[in-house]
Amino acid sequence: MSLFTGTPSYYRQYRPGIPDDLAARLATYVPDRQPCSLLDVGTGTGLVAEAMMPFFTDIIACDNDPDMIATAEQALRPKVPQGAALSLVTSTAEDLRPPTGWKADLVTICRAFHWLDQVAVLHLLDSQVAEGGAVAVFSNRSFWAAESDWKAAVKQVIKGFLGEERRAGTRTFQHHNRPYSEIMEESPFSQVEEFTVPVIRTWNTASIHGYLYSTSFAAPALFGDRLEEFETTVHKTLRGFSRDDTYHETNEFLVRIGRRSA
């Protein structure tokens, strides 16, 4: 089973995308020239590529899961602006080879950096990023961080079904012990800037289930024949935190922008 077996439809519908103001801010790091190219690494179902479309004329988005790419193709192809180009590629970041001569003005890696061979990918990108270009690594806090009572309660339900350690498909999740900024500072993109973008979200039981089923730690296949039991338990647990099936979340994106030294 891959990390995201059975998740693409949930991922596309229930994973929060990036805020419009974050997309616009990322675009300000792009050199002022045309055509303007974006490489979106670990695109999943294309949420970031879609948000960045208004700012780029040429986009390559890659993911190693063919079902994710197929879902992205179906969702994004009708939305490509006239005169723009979009290529969706099934490939790992480590194996990606853009067309000869193609270089990105901006690389986006959202919620995927922890799955990569980070050092190798950053060095590979040195040959794939145009002069004056940048690499943006960013993510919001994971549901697993459980910074609200209702999240913590749902997390305990997941642990009750799948074990104490956070799952990553059939494996357990391996945490990185170095800040991403430190890793980037040792790469060709050593000039690193950080900023945060706050987000406020509102969930209900259906969207919480959908989000969980989009993750590697609570993918439907992990529950086997106990999936319906899991859903019922989550539903009962959430009822203790809201009378109107409304659950609020305060979160933020931490963004790291890496550039080459002058």
Rank of each mutant, 00 (worst) to 15 (best):
M1C: 11
T215E: 05
P19M: 12
E249H: 09
V48K: 05
D117P: 03
A93L: 02
I183M: 12
G240Q: 13
I59A: 04
E228I: 09
Q82S: 13
V30C: 12
W150K: 07
H235P: 01
D126W: 11
A146S: 15
I183W: 04
M68S: 11
T108F: 02
A136W: 04
Q34F: 11
W115K: 14
L124N: 14
A75H: 12
R77Y: 09
F195V: 08
E147T: 14
S142C: 10
T5L: 14
R166D: 00
K151R: 15
R111H: 11
E194Q: 13
Y247P: 00
V137Y: 03
H209R: 08
P78A: 08
S187E: 10
I59G: 01
A27W: 04
Q118G: 06
I60E: 02
A153I: 11
E186N: 15
L38F: 08
L116V: 08
A85L: 03
Q118L: 05
V234F: 02
K155F: 07
S142N: 13
G44P: 02
G169H: 10
P31Q: 14
S242Y: 07
C110V: 10
I257W: 01
R259H: 08
G163K: 15
G6P: 04
G210R: 12
Y213I: 07
H176R: 14
T92G: 06
D58Y: 04
L76P: 00
R226S: 10
K159V: 07
I69A: 05
R12K: 10
D32I: 08
Q191N: 14
I257V: 13
A153F: 04
L96R: 02
V129I: 09
D65L: 14
G132I: 12
L22Y: 05
